[in-house]
Amino acid sequence: MALLHTVNKSPYERNTLESCLNHVQEGDTVLLIEDGVYAVIKGGRAADVLASVKGVKIAALSADLKARGITADKMIDGVEVVDYGGFVDLVTSNDKVQAWL
């Protein structure tokens, strides 16, 4: 039962991402949206945590990355950038969605 986890809070303001990562299982996907996308910035503390997670797909929403000036060169490797259509695909391809707020 694969789960899609969405995280919409900055990892530097709340422990939402941390809590999410403590509950993911192999095969799950974590989609970072809104302020959640700040976790992917290279050199940031949250990015180190994100990079250490194994067996879980990490994705981030392009509209939210762009709005915040987070370009590809500023991101850690291994993050799949998806658009709104890709968001919908992730919802349909997983069994459930868990929104970490």
Binding site: Y12, S62, A63, K66, A67, R68, G69, D83
Partner: peptide, 21 residues
């Protein structure tokens, strides 16, 4: 300070977000 520093990070493109930059 804290997440406030993100306000000053350059290069916003809010077009896809549908919000004013």
């Amino acid at each position: 300070l804290d997440d406030g520093v993100f306000q000053l990070v350059k290069g916003w493109d809010t077009s896809e977000l549908g919000a004013k930059n």
